[in-house]
Design a protein around this nucleic acid. Structure first.
Lengths: 217, 217
DNA sequence: AAAAAAAGTGACTAAATGGTCAGGAAATTG
DNA sequence: CAATTTCCTGACCATTTAGTCACTTTTTTT
């Protein structure tokens, strides 16, 4: 009676996943407007009407996908406290974000497009959870600075710059691939991560933790 | 007989400019697919057919606009030689790029979208002029490193990271504005520029030139 | 196994949109 | 001023596309 349905491991849940995966690929490649429901259907190997059956509309599908994507944005940095080590915490954060760019470039691209277009679907999120998260991190960074554990950089701009660099390797991969003549592999990402950690930590007056000094962790 | 036309200061040139400005605004806000020729026409206060009269097609207009945009990408860093000072050269470059993000955010967004979508129109440019420019800059940076003028960072990733950070302030302005509660003004950009210069130069083992140490230049 | 709920789909529609075309107005030129 | 070129535009069209609907099939529940 109380239909548990839909969210079960049932057939519906499987198809929803299939559709979301297809939508992620299509939206990341062609953008929201540039993707037709038919394309997603083809990619998912399902009839178009079936897409609209599970998600009320193209927008509904996009919103659901965006929510999925935002849940990937978590990292060890969420749990950091002022008692943790700045160098290791920041290095881990950069490493986590670089790993995301390598393993989920499509998600990063969709996020980037959403923000580029004025973030109509993420406005709410930005002004609530996201601002809370950011303020919390800034507080910790300021604490570290006050304690003399790191150089007095502006924590806000530091975070912006970390986001910028890490996401860049996913979002601008086509430019990077063209310039390098070949796509970045795992080893290249590891090297880029080490370079970025070195740049940021030096800039913050911190020394690079051993595990990020030579080969990857 | 030899029609000089079109490129004159004539009425056509004026309208083309008007259309390009309208297209820049529209494409930056809604993307290529998300913008209709009618929207551009409304923005330019011209009938739709007039747009198609000056530019053969929507794609033609986009291509023309993109070419315009790419010509903005020049900076003092283009003329730098190995005899120049690394700290000042890099600081100036970062400053130039930040200024671009502040004064031409729409151009930056259109470029970002183009690259996000796989850079179909810029592939050629990337693989010719752009790779030549980049290789030239890398050579100079390597020269500085060999001479012990700066820390041995990977010049390629250094450039990527500079592009990422500077463009971020234009491309992700909606996120930044949401988090800060207000848009970044001139003074905020100056502060962000100083912070970034400090971060990058420290990371390269360079000291910040006086003109970028306190208030803006 | 009957009933009910969920899954699935082909045919269709209404709206949006890029682009064409024929003809006319205005400007420029000889 | 006549001729030529440039400029301009309303009417129209072909295509794409999100979404609806009526109806069938499959799965689950009782």
């Amino acid at each position: 009676m109380v239909s548990k349905s839909k969210m079960d491991g049932s057939i519906g849940a499987k198809n929803k996943q299939k559709i979301l995966a297809a939508a992620e690929k299509a939206f990341a490649t062609y953008g929201f407007k540039g993707t037709s429901v038919q394309q997603i259907a083809d990619e998912a190997e399902l009839p178009k009407t079936n897409i609209l059956y599970y998600f009320k509309s193209k927008q509904g599908l996009y919103a659901a996908l965006l929510q999925d994507i935002m849940s990937l944005w978590n990292s060890r940095f969420d749990q950091v406290t002022e008692n943790d080590d700045p160098a290791e915490s920041l290095a881990d954060y950069i490493n986590d974000k670089m790993t995301m760019s390598r393993t989920h470039p499509q998600a990063s691209k969709i996020f980037a497009m959403e923000v580029l277009n004025g973030a109509p679907y993420l406005h709410k999120y930005f002004r609530s959870e996201h601002v809370a998260w950011t303020d919390g991190r800034i507080e910790i960074l300021n604490h570290w600075i006050k304690q003399g554990k790191m150089k007095a950089v502006d924590p806000q701009y530091l975070l912006f710059n970390i986001w910028a660099c890490t996401q860049h390797y996913a979002d601008f991969s086509s430019q990077i691939t063209s310039l390098r003549g070949k796509a970045m592999k795992r080893a290249d990402f590891d090297e880029a991560t080490r370079q970025l950690i070195q740049l940021v930590l030096s800039g913050c007056g911190l020394s690079v933790p051993k595990k990020y000094q030579e080969s990857a962790e």
